[in-house]
Write a protein that binds this DNA or RNA. Structure first.
Length: 151
DNA sequence: GCCAACGTTGGC
DNA sequence: GCCAACGTTGGC
């Protein structure tokens, strides 16, 4: 079992949206490193911190879990869509996605500010300056630590 | 809205 | 295959 953190802008798709739909296909990832994590390393049942970015209080707001094998991201084939990539074909898909399933919404945000105050979390990717990866691995100990911080 | 960080693109 | 230009991300 591995642990992850995924970012989402709550204006676009929040933990409340996640809870409302139950399961969501995580389309639109157009970064090779993030794609490789989904394609090569994620397994069904992996636990995932759900992080709100680009908002008033950035931080971890809940838990989801990996609910599918990786499969081609069909939004890359939609010429009208914003995720269109002419280099991705149905014969040779360049981008993949997985499904995430809602597990839990925290009573309170575990804010980035709070995360930065914890010596034990010094090595989390989310604390690195200029971090832009939307999907990152999380160490088991860090995952548990975040859970202990939730309201 | 600013700006630093950084991945991607394209000219050479 | 280098690297400058560009676009995007995301905290502040």
């Amino acid at each position: 079992m591995k642990y992850w953190l995924i970012k989402s802008e709550p204006d676009a798709f929040s933990i409340d949206d996640m809870e409302a739909v139950g399961t969501e296909s995580w389309d639109g990832v157009r970064n090779y490193q993030a794609r490789n994590f989904m394609r090569d390393e994620m397994e069904i049942g992996d636990r995932v911190l759900f992080y709100h970015s680009s908002c008033k209080v950035p931080g971890v707001v809940g838990i989801v879990q990996v609910a599918s094998r990786p499969y081609p991201d069909h939004t890359a084939w939609d010429e009208r869509g914003k995720y269109y990539d002419p280099k991705s074909t149905e014969e040779n898909p360049r981008w993949v996605m997985v499904d995430f399933e809602f597990v839990e919404k925290f009573d309170e945000v575990v804010s980035l500010e709070a995360i930065k105050a914890e010596e034990a979390l010094a090595e989390m990717y989310i604390r690195r300056k200029g971090n832009r990866l939307s999907i990152t691995p999380v160490e088991a100990a860090h995952f548990e630590y975040i859970l202990a911080m939730r309201g």
